[in-house]
Design a protein around this nucleic acid. Sequence first.
DNA 1: CATTTACAGACC
DNA 2: GGTCTGTAA
Length: 690
Amino acid sequence: MSHTDRIIVLVDMDCFYCQVEENLNPQFKGKPLAVVQYNTWRGGGIIAVNYPARDRGVTRHMRGDEAKRKCPEIELVHVPSVRDKADLTKYRDAGKLVAAVLQTFTPLLQRASVDEAYLDITDAVTERTNMATREIQRSEIKNTHVVGCEPLEFLYSLYSSGLCEDANLKLAYGAVIAEEIRAAVLQQTGYTCSAGIAHNKILAKLAAGLNKPNQQTVLPQSGVESLFQNLPLHKIRSLGGKFGHSLTEDLGITTMAELVKFSEKDLKKRYDEKTAIWLYNIARGIDLEPVTIRLVSKSIGCCKTFPGRSALITPQSVLHWIGELGAELVERLEKDLEENNRKARQVTVGFTHDVNGNDISTSRVHPLNSYNAKKITDDSYAIIKKLCLKADGTFCIKSISFNAGKFEDCRNVTAITSFFKSDGPYKTIRKMEASERVEILNTDIDEENYSNETVDLNEDATKLTFYKDNCENASDDSITDEIPTVEERSTKGSFFLQYFEDMKNCQHEPPVLRDFDTSRNLEDDDLLDTPGTSKDEDVPTELCEECHQSIPISEMMSHKDHHLALQIDKEEKLTRKSNVPTITIKAKENTKSKKRKCSDNRPNCTLTKFLQSTVKLQEENTQECPQCNRRIRKSDFDDHLDYHVAKELHMEINDIKLCSAANVPKTIKKSKTTKTVSKTRSVISFFKPS
DNA sequence: CATTTACAGACC
DNA sequence: GGTCTGTAA
C-alpha cells in the first residue's frame, strides 16, 4: 500500500452562484457579475464574483457599493429573500444536480460543500490502464495542466523511458477521466468547473486552485517539491486559519518548503502525535485521508444575525424571527425527507446575546418528533425565554441559529426473517421499502458483533447459493426441496428478486415479523402477566431472560429470534444503502447484542418458512381472501387472516419507530401497541408447517 | 454595528 | 449534551 496508489479528483465549480444566475439569465454571460445578499447596508454583501468582474478588481468580501465604484457596469444579482432571509435553495439544488452527474462516475463521492466534491476514481483509472491499447493523446487532456512540466512532456515521459512510471500513468488516466467528468457536468448541467487530479485529497484540492476557471491540473508527486518551494502554508487545506498561523508563530516558517525541515520528532515535541504525523506527511505531499462517501450533510441548519442596533429586544421580535427560522428549517427538512428518506430527531437552538457588554453564546437541544414549525418555534422560544429573558421583560439577542440533526433512516421494513446455520451465526434478512436490496444481518454469536451486508439481487446470484448452502447444512432435511435449484434460479433470474417482484404484485405477502406470537411478545413492556407464570400450565415452559416471561420450551428459540429481530430493528443499525452500488460489508460493533447459546436441536430453519411462503398456491383446495383477493390454502386461511393483522401491526411498529425519540413517553408507545395486540392472536402459525 | 452562513468536530 | 472552535465559501 503506497501513498500514490489512489487517484483523487477534486471538482470545484467556478464561481458557482454566479454561474447559476448566468444560466438563469443568459444575458449576463461574459459581463461582470456579482451575487449579493441583503441590500440594506451599503449595497449588500458580495458572496460570489464572476471572472469578468474579478478582472476588474471586484472581490468577495466587498459591499455592493464598493463593487459599483470599482466597476460601474457590474450586474449585482440579489440572493432571493424568503421570510426576510437569504434563500440559498436554488444554489443547493444546482449543487445536487452536479453531484448527481459526478455520482455516475464513482460511488466514492464525497461532497465537501455545495460546489465542491472529492472523487476517488482509482478503480476507473485501473480499468483504463488495463484496457489501454494505445498511448494517451494530448487531445484527450486538452484543458489539463501538469505541475512541474508541460503536459506534452508529461505524456512523453510516460512512454519514453523503458520504465513506465505507474503512478504518473495513472494520474494521466485520471486527467483523461477528469476531462470526461467535467465535460459531462457541463453538458448535463451547463456549469463549468475546475478540477485537481492527484494521489490524495490535499493535493487534489491544492491543484484544482492552480488553474481556473474551466481547467484542470495534475499534481504528480514529482511536482510537489518545486511547488512547495514558495508555497505559503495557508494554501493547504486546514492550514488557512488559526492553526496555520500558529505554525508560523511556533516554527517561524511561512512556506511548505520550510516545514519539510522539521523531523517527526521535532513536530511531536510541539504537537500531539496525530497532528505531528499529519504535518510531517503533508510537508512531503502525503495524505492518507480517505474519500468517505457522503452525499448528504449530517445536519441541516439556518441562522440569522442581528448585528449592532438590530439586536432583538422585544419578545415579539424574537418570536417573529424564530418563527421565520423554524419555517425555513421545516421547509428544508421536508424536502430532505422527500429526497433522502430520513428524519431529523433533534433540533439545536443556539443564540448569542449580550450580557453586560459581552457576547455570550448558548445552545440547547430539544427532540424533534414531527416536522411541525409551530412546535419547533414554541419549544425554541421556551428555551430562549428561560435562558435570556431579562428581568425587565426584554432580550438582547445578536444571533439565533436552528440546527436539525440526528437523522434516522425512515424507510419501512417490508420484510424480515431470520434463520440459523446449524453451527453458524444467526442471520436476519431484511428488505427495505423502495429498495431492490435485502440486507443480511449476521450476528456473530461468539464475538458479539455482526456484519451488515447489503446484497443487490440484480447483480449477485452467488449470494443465493450462499443462502442455500446455509440451509442445506441446517438440520432440517426438507429444506432443499423447498428452495429452487440453481437452474431454476437462473431461468427465473434472481429467486429473491422474483419473490419481491411477486410481493409488489401482491402474489404473496411478506412474512412480517415472522415467527412470534404477538399476543404475548410484541413489546417487552406490554406484557401484563406476572413473570414466572404461564398462561397455559400444561405446557412446559422456560423463563425468557429478555422479557422474564414463561415461554413454552418448544417456542423458546423462535421467541428469542423475535427479541433479536426486534432489537435489530430498533437499533437502527442501518447504514445508508441507497448509494452503494453492489455489496457492502461493514463490520459493526453491537455491544448490546445478546448472547445466545448454540444448541444442536435447533428449530426448523426459519429461512425455509420464508421461502415456503413464496411457493405459488395452485392447489384446488384454496379460498379467496376478502382482504387481498388472493387464493389461500384452506388449511392456512385462519393464519392468513392473522397475517393481515400482523401486517397492520407491522405498520404500527414502523410508525412507532419513527416517533420513538427519547422524549416520547413510553406509555404512549405501549398503549398504541397494546391496542393492536389485543386484536391479535397467533401470527407465527402462518409460518409454521401445517 | 456589519459578512453571513453553514457545517463539522473536539473537548469536557 | 453543551459549548466552543475551526474552516471555508
